[in-house]
Design a protein around this nucleic acid. Sequence first.
DNA 1: CAAAAATACCTTGTATTGCATAATATAATT
DNA 2: AATTATATTATGCAATACAAGGTATTTTTG
Lengths: 118, 118
Amino acid sequence: MERDEELLEKWKSQFRKGFLELCLLELLSAEGRSYGLAIMERMRDLGLDISEGTLYPLLMRLTKDGSIAASWETPEVGHPRKYYTITSLGATLLSAMIEEYDRSQAVRTGISGGGKAE
Amino acid sequence: MERDEELLEKWKSQFRKGFLELCLLELLSAEGRSYGLAIMERMRDLGLDISEGTLYPLLMRLTKDGSIAASWETPEVGHPRKYYTITSLGATLLSAMIEEYDRSQAVRTGISGGGKAE
DNA sequence: CAAAAATACCTTGTATTGCATAATATAATT
DNA sequence: AATTATATTATGCAATACAAGGTATTTTTG
């Protein structure tokens, strides 16, 4: 791989830090409860290509922190699944994150004075 | 500090990963060459409250990677300063980063189907 | 003017933390 | 028995945060 491609990939991986969490909470908040693999698939559809080893640790961390809650469900037919829902703490954090995200957009806008071609 | 404040601060710190780099490159690209402390001050004005221990390692890393170039300048009067400029590699990376940033916004838009109140 | 204090500027070390890859584990279908 | 669906764990890497250290230049002061 070329050097700049390599640097870009490294950057992308860093750039995702925090962003994944924001997306996950937003997803659960907007679309309701879901389970690991379904979340992964949904995120892929959205253009976020994550793997199990990325998602599950995230789910576990957020569960431990109390932003989301997990519960096993065993259907009559099919595999047992661990479903996740966003908690009220999670919702509180999510709105603070969205605020920060919006603020960061404003920062960039400030840099070039808006970058308008006028 | 309360628990949710703590979690939020931790998240913010993660969320900045990559974002600082994007802002720095954008700053140098839009506003031209500058040196450490001046960059710090400018970023603070923009609402990015970073410290020397955050900025300088970033500057050094980008210099090493070749995204920016550094050169010492000793004015007739005043302290020697290390000025940084964005390189063509840096500019290439910057535009790729902006693309990715925009894409990530689209991802969020996709989550709630736009979240329009209609 | 000389010595001391303060300031401007940059560097370095260590800790924390989250993402990436890949391997492991288990139960339910086929 | 083999495959598929689901989840967990381990290890490594990289960036930001905090804090301490370091040097040169200006400013203060005696």
